[in-house]
Amino acid sequence: MDAGNYKDGKILLNPEKFAEMIVSSHQVSDDLEPEKIIKRKLTIYLTAILIAERFNKLENRDLSKSDCNSIDALVKKLSTKKFEDW
């Protein structure tokens, strides 16, 4: 599943595909009631969409102006950002 693309030196995430990928990779205990499983998955899905959208804004605003010419540099730059900064 392709959750993003790399174009013109930018990485942009498709929020819906990213969220689907995150939800499908998250394990939820079968011991929970079905409604709790659904609520947990929905929470994860919506949170993933918000994070992808924040990442895309960050990429457009800050990272495109920086010297992140490689994936390694981009990951290093992201690791220095606090979640609240997104």
Rank of each mutant, 00 (worst) to 15 (best):
Ile22Gln: 06
Glu20Met: 00
Leu42Arg: 10
Ile49Met: 10
Thr80Phe: 11
Ile71Met: 14
Leu32Ala: 02
Gln27Leu: 13
Tyr45Cys: 04
Ile71Thr: 15
Ile11Ala: 00
Ser29Trp: 01
Glu16Ile: 07
Lys77Ser: 12
Met21Phe: 12
Asn69Thr: 10
Ile37Asn: 01
Ser29Leu: 01
Val75Gln: 08
Lys76Gly: 05
Ile71Ala: 15
Lys41Cys: 07
Glu16Ala: 04
Glu84Arg: 10
Ile11Pro: 05
Ile22Met: 04
Ser70Gln: 04
Ala73Lys: 15
Leu13Val: 00
Ser79Glu: 13
Lys81Leu: 14
Leu42Pro: 05
Ile38Arg: 07
Asn60Cys: 09
Lys41Gln: 14
Asp62Val: 00
Asp67Cys: 04
Lys57Glu: 07
Met21Tyr: 11
Asn14Thr: 09
Leu32Pro: 01
Ile38Leu: 09
Glu20His: 06
Gly4Ala: 11
Ile51Phe: 10
Leu50Thr: 15
Phe18Leu: 02
Met1Phe: 13
Arg40His: 13
Pro15Asp: 06
Asn69Trp: 07
Lys39Cys: 13
Val23Gln: 01
Glu20Ser: 02
Asp2Val: 15
Ala48Glu: 05
Ile51Pro: 05
Ala19Gln: 06
Ile49Trp: 02
Asp31Phe: 02
Ser64Cys: 12
Met1Gln: 13
Gln27Ser: 13
Ile49Gly: 06
Tyr45Pro: 03
Ile44Asp: 00
Thr43Gly: 14
Leu58Cys: 11
Thr47Ile: 15
Ser79His: 09
Gly9Glu: 00
Asn60His: 09
Ser64Thr: 13
Gly9Met: 03
Lys39Asn: 13
Leu42Ser: 11
Ile38Met: 06
Arg54Glu: 12
His26Met: 04
Pro15Ala: 03
Lys7Tyr: 08
Lys41Pro: 06
Thr80Asp: 12
His26Asp: 07
Ile49Ala: 03
Leu12Asp: 07
Ile44Thr: 04
Leu42Gln: 11
Glu84Ile: 12
Val75Lys: 09
Arg61Lys: 15
Ser66Ala: 12
Thr80Met: 10
Glu59Asp: 04
Gly9Trp: 01
Ile22Lys: 06
Asn69Met: 03
Val23Phe: 01
Phe83His: 10
Gln27Arg: 12
Lys81Ser: 09
Thr80Leu: 05
Leu78Pro: 04
Lys10Ala: 02
Phe18Ile: 07
Val28Phe: 03
Asn14His: 14
Val23Arg: 01
Ala73Tyr: 10
Ser64Ala: 13
Glu16Gly: 01
